[in-house]
Structures are given as structure tokens and as C-alpha cells.
Design a protein around this nucleic acid. Sequence first.
DNA 1: ACTCTACATGAGAATAATTCTCATGTGCAA
DNA 2: TTGCACATGAGAATTATTCTCATGTAGAGT
Lengths: 141, 141
Amino acid sequence: MESEELRNVGLKVTTPRLKILSLLENAKAKHMTAETIYRQLSEGGEVIGLATVYRALAQFEAAGLITRHQFEGGQTVFELERGPHHDHIVCARCGRVEEFYDKVIEDRQREIAEKLGFTLSDHALTLYGECSNGTCTAKNG
Amino acid sequence: MESEELRNVGLKVTTPRLKILSLLENAKAKHMTAETIYRQLSEGGEVIGLATVYRALAQFEAAGLITRHQFEGGQTVFELERGPHHDHIVCARCGRVEEFYDKVIEDRQREIAEKLGFTLSDHALTLYGECSNGTCTAKNG
DNA sequence: ACTCTACATGAGAATAATTCTCATGTGCAA
DNA sequence: TTGCACATGAGAATTATTCTCATGTAGAGT
């Protein structure tokens, strides 16, 4: 239940928040911009201000429910924080996003940070390339 | 000579381009925003439009003379493309940026891309943490 | 259930970063 | 030397995001 999720992180359960959260859970695209979320909700007949979408996303992020990614060239996208940590590879041609996890890289990052005297708190790793996908033409998330 | 660099990449040698390029080469900070570049040139008495700074930076980037980084939270920064490839670790507290290169990670990235059917063309890796630096208080680049 | 208050919301204005427009200026090939 | 493709400065325009403010509402305490 989405209301549980909100309560668990100390957020009031409100209609806009529920709608946004469940859109993120049910949408076809895993990575969505604030605009896209706003538009899809509007098309679904909801009356939710764009500012509210931005506010809710910021709160969800602070609460750890979602993650924010800034792929190069594109707008900021948001993704539900489900399952294990992963990084992304983005097709420069069609915009397709694949996820991956690599223990070697993860470990190495921690070692590097330590060696340089940093306490690692986060990281952003995105690979860019062209996918050899036949359907590599249209944009999707 | 900066004029050489410009000619080599097929750009006309103009005063604004030369000024921007040499500022990037001589500035104390290795990573600068377009605004900073604009401001420093203005303070130095140059009359160069901000739009020109953006235009020049975009061209330099396309030509491979500089690289663009989008550290989280911050504005886009530009860095002269000198020496070997490297990635960054940014202190979340004081903004200090350190560079590092790790062959293991680099190799791994290529392998991952290949395994996923992508031809790797680029990547962005930034680590975030807190540096254990005593001087870790003020912002710098 | 009722009420009160702190927090949430929608709408549109405001801001920040970047790009565009356009009239004018200029590097450089011929 | 000159012509013209490309570059420039200034400010307008655009884009993404955040703020403001008057109003609405969730939910703790009764």
C-alpha cells in the first residue's frame, strides 16, 4: 500500500502524493521527468499542480523512496528506489536506459574514496554508448 | 600557443576564444562555470558577452578541448582536457574536487557495456563524500 | 466525531541557467 | 583587398525549477 510507504517515512498521506507514487509504480517507463509525471496525471484527469509534483518528488527523494538522475543532455529523471542499488547505461541514439550492478566497481569506488581521504556517501556512474538494438530509434525511458 | 589549438580543431582564432581558452589554462580553479569565466574576464576588463562564453565553451567541448561536468547540486563546470582521462570525487561539505583514475573501473565499464550490447562512447563517474581535510569549510573548485 | 494547527496545495509569479535572435563586426581564403 | 561565412554583444526568449501566498486538509488530541 502506498499510504504505508508515505507514513513509514513520516510524510502525511495526501492525494497528490499517493497519485504520484502510484504513477511511479505503475508507469511503463522506469525513469520519468517531473513534467512527464505532471502531464500523465493531468491526462488522467487529476488536478495536481506542477509545483506539487516537484515538491513531492523532492520529499520522496529526501525520504529515500526515489532516486534522482541527471543523464547528460536530458532533464532530471526520477526512479523508484526498489531492489538493489544499480547504475545506468544510456543509449545516446534512442535514449534507452539499462541498469547494471558491478561489485568490482562498487568496491573499487569505496577504496578510492578512502585512499583520497573521503568518506564516501554517494556516487553517480552513468555509461553512454549506442545500443545495437534493432529497435534503436524511438525515445523511451 | 592557444591560437594553434584553435586552428588545429578548425575554429577561427578570435579574441573571445583566445581569452576564454587562456583563462581556462591559467586560472587557479580547474573547474569553472560559464558564469565564473564570464565574471573573471569582465573583471579583467574584457568586454565579452555571456552568450559568447557559452558558445565558445560548447564549441571547445565539441572539439574535445574541454570537458563538461555536472556535479550534483552544482552548476555545470568546464575543465581543460589535458593529461590522461580521469574521474572526480567531490566533497559534499566544502565542494573540493579531487581527480582520480582507476584502470580496474575503466576496464570494467567497457566490459559491462559490451555485455549489455552497447558500444561505449563516454561515461560519467563522480563520487561524493566528505573529505577529512582540516580546511574543509570554504567552497572552491 | 470535532476542532485546531501545522503542514500541504494550486496557480501563477519569480529565479536561474542557458540558448536564441538579430544587427553588426571580423578572420581569413582567394 | 575584399567578400562572405562565420562570430559577436546585448538583450530577449526559453526551460527547468523554486517560491509566494491565499486557501485547503490530514491527523493528533480531545
